[in-house]
Write a protein that binds this DNA or RNA. Structure first.
Length: 515
RNA sequence: GCCCCGUUCGUCUAGUUGGUCCAGGACGCCAGAUUUUCAUUCUGGAAAUCAGGAGUUCAAAUCUCCUACGGGGUACCA
């Protein structure tokens, strides 16, 4: 079984994992599982200057939360390790040398400063400097220098990089599983650095070497890699290795304006761009995360999967398992997709309704207990059964678990003030007197399990005999009991709160409002 | 600038080999119904001259070319 599908998600630990990265990982996961293959996590930390403390742990925790399990890689292990490129440092040099010996790559001694100067000079003339077939002969490298000179410089410890030698005027072609056939002329490409002067490989070399060594069969990555794929194709050819299949995913764009979704957009527009909340160790800045904002991981996964992909049917809600079964890489769209936060909320609402009431109640119960002081409620009187009843009553009006409180606070704490708008509309001249009269009747109804039904029955009769309409009475009672024009059916509220509490609240309202 | 990729309702998209698409669904929006509340739910509606132009064809959102626009890349970053 050497044609087993193996894909990898290979982030760099330069900060928190962006939602676009999560989607790339998700598509890799779906493709792997659909084909009974392996999904690996490789950490690409070849740029030591950009390493950020905690980023690697963040990545691992994110996928744990999302429910995407890796079969192999950093934090899991496997037969092709180590899976962190900084720990594989020693293996890349030999491969770079192999290319030099084959005449496919060469040494270059130009300093970063020299090249930067070339670039700015070219820019001043409205041109672009490129290290390529036209310029390399005039630069300091093993192509322009004598063999002796090169050997001397290396022996003396002169810093150097190894660059790929692009052939001149050759058509480079490859097939992308999403975009089809792609061609590019090699003369347009520059001789990319493969091996840096600090002894580390660049992305291009490390990526190809590792994908080969780890027997990766399909490279599924963001569109930003499409322009460097010709280089990668040439590298596979130079090494005489089998090439994996490529698939370049469209990017996630800003909901407004131009360009791809960036870290800044989240806080600017009020939605998370990261799976988990991120505390920047240097700037101390905090960026919001989906988890902390109250999103369910299943909803985030579903939303991301449908951003740029669908199975052709009209179904939109998919479990991870269904996504795996339905997934096909050819159905991924070719163009970027603007992120839609309204639809994301809708997904969360859908998934929140699926959460078992008992589980949701447990969460809410814990929340109420730990915030009891702030919410001004007596935590010793809090009972899980009661909380469960409440959750069952108000869950459907919530998109987020955290909205539970704003939709059910009155079950726990009597209103201390009344919404102004509601007051104007629901409590007119004479309402207080009317309510006083109603209370006197309600008092006479026997307390017990059927009190609420009896009270309702009485109210119906009362409304009829007094030739009133139900809204006039029920809405005023609601205002007195809830403090606003919100909440479930009054009968349910009366049942839950009970005779004593209902009467007490109406009484207080008549005293306070005084109309 | 140069190179690569893309372009269907405000947004995400359906539209596999050209005809049954005067373009379907979802989010959002608007209206109505239910709940005489709010939310949910349900029903209905507005919303794309298929970026524009030229061509191929009896027939094009679907094929070809050009233009425009959008995105990405152009580092000893990934």
């Amino acid at each position: 079984m050497n044609n087993r599908v193996r894909v990898r998600f290979a982030p760099s630990p330069t900060g928190p994992l962006h939602i676009g990265g999560v989607r790339t990982a998700l598509f890799n996961y779906l493709f792997a599982k659909k084909n009974n293959g392996d999904f690996l996590l490789r950490i690409e930390d070849t740029d030591q200057t950009r390493f950020v403390e905690g980023a690697e742990e963040y990545i691992i925790e994110s996928f744990k939360w999302l429910g995407l399990k890796f079969d192999e890689g950093v934090g899991i292990g496997g037969d092709y390790g180590p899976y962190k490129q900084s720990e594989r440092k020693s293996i890349y040099k030999d491969f770079a040398m192999e290319l030099v010996n084959k005449g496919k790559a060469y040494y270059a001694f130009d300093s970063a400063e020299e090249l930067a100067q070339k670039r700015s000079e070219a820019e001043a003339n409205k041109q672009t400097f490129q290290y390529d077939c036209k310029t390399r002969k005039g630069l300091k490298n093993s192509l322009s220098l004598s063999k002796e000179e090169v050997e001397r410089m290396i022996a003396e410890g002169e810093p150097y990089v190894i660059r790929f030698l692009f052939p001149e005027d050759e058509m480079i072609e490859f097939d992308d599983m999403i975009r089809g056939h792609i061609t590019m002329n090699s003369s347009l490409l520059d001789d990319k650095v493969l091996y840096k002067s600090d002894g580390m490989p660049t992305y291009h070399l490390a990526n190809i070497v590792d994908d080969h060594l780890m027997k990766i069969t399909h490279v599924i990555r963001g569109e930003e890699w499409l322009p460097s794929t010709p280089l990668h194709v040439m590298l596979y050819k130079a090494f005489e290795w089998d090439m994996p299949m490529f698939a370049h995913l469209p990017l996630i764009l800003k909901p407004d304006g131009k360009g791809k979704l960036s870290k800044r957009d989240g806080d600017r527009l009020g939605f998370p761009v990261f799976p988990l909340e991120w505390h920047d160790p240097k700037t101390k800045e905090i960026s919001s995360g989906y988890r902390e904002s109250g999103y369910l991981p299943e909803a985030v996964v579903n939303m991301l999967a449908l951003l740029g992909w669908n199975d052709g049917s009209e179904q939109e809600i998919f479990s991870l398992e269904e996504l795996v079964n339905r997934f096909s890489i050819e159905r991924i769209s070719k163009h970027g997709a603007k992120f839609d936060m309204e639809k994301t909320k809708w997904f969360n609402h859908q998934y929140l309704q699926k959460v078992d009431t008992k589980d949701l109640a447990k969460l809410y119960f814990e929340f109420l207990k730990s915030n009891s002081a702030e919410l001004k409620l007596d935590s010793t009187k809090l009972e899980i059964d009661f909380v469960e009843t409440i959750v069952d009553l108000v869950k459907e009006r919530c998109s987020f678990a955290k909205e539970l409180w704003e939709n059910s606070d009155y079950f726990f704490v009597a209103p201390t003030e009344y919404a102004e708008k509601a007051l104007k509309k629901r409590w007119k001249e004479g309402t207080s007197a009317r309510m006083m009269e109603i209370i006197s009747h309600l008092e006479n109804i026997e307390d017990g399990s059927t009190w609420a039904e009896k009270a309702e029955e009485f109210l119906m009769n009362y409304i009829q005999t007094n030739e009133l309409n139900m809204g006039q009475i029920m809405n005023s009672i609601r205002l007195a009991v809830v403090g606003d024009t919100k909440g479930p059916n009054m009968l349910d509220i009366m049942k839950v709160l009970g005779k004593k509490e209902i009467i007490a609240r109406i009484k207080i309202a008549t005293e306070r409002i005084n109309l």
